[in-house]
């Protein structure tokens, strides 16, 4: 399928809690997308390289340690530098509401709190597919 959307679910930072990341990866695959999971403890550089090498359309970031305000901006600026600025980026994990506007400002399309249904993620991807 030529128009299949390719997705990388990435775990930047040092936290090893990837129950959510693995669930999202598998549920998105069940929904018909091509999905790769990075595994835990990836640097921003490694994740961005993986996204570009794998030629993904979408990058989902999962972080539960509270380091999102440091790591997500670095990932976004690396993506821009290296020509990955057309990739749709969304995020999930333990991310306080008040941090969300700042993350959207740097180009993260949506931030999903714990307990978000998978359909909410799919809706964001499908809306982006239509609009692109």
């Amino acid at each position: 399928m030529d128009d299949a959307i390719r997705i990388l679910i990435g775990k930047p930072g040092l936290d090893g809690h990837d129950r959510g990341a693995k669930y999202i990866a598998r549920a998105l695959r069940d929904a018909g997308y091509e999905v790769i999971y990075s595994g835990i403890r990836q640097t921003p550089e490694a994740l961005v390289n993986m996204a570009l090498q794998e030629d993904v359309d979408v990058l989902g970031l999962s972080l539960l340690s509270g380091a999102h305000n440091e790591l997500f901006p670095r990932i976004m600026s690396l993506l821009n530098e290296k020509g990955g600025d057309d990739i749709l980026v969304f995020a999930g994990g333990i991310i306080p509401d008040e941090d969300i506007p700042g993350l959207k400002d740097i180009g993260i399309a949506e931030v999903f709190p714990p307990g978000s249904p998978i359909q909410a993620v799919i809706d964001v991807i499908e809306k982006w597919r239509k609009d692109r």
Binding site: L14, D15, A67
Partner: peptide
Amino acid sequence: DLPTQIGYDSDHPMAFGEVGKV
């Protein structure tokens, strides 16, 4: 914190953003 749990000093590049967080 996670750098301590994985054996990185706080000024190690891998510790970026994680020092004192969890």
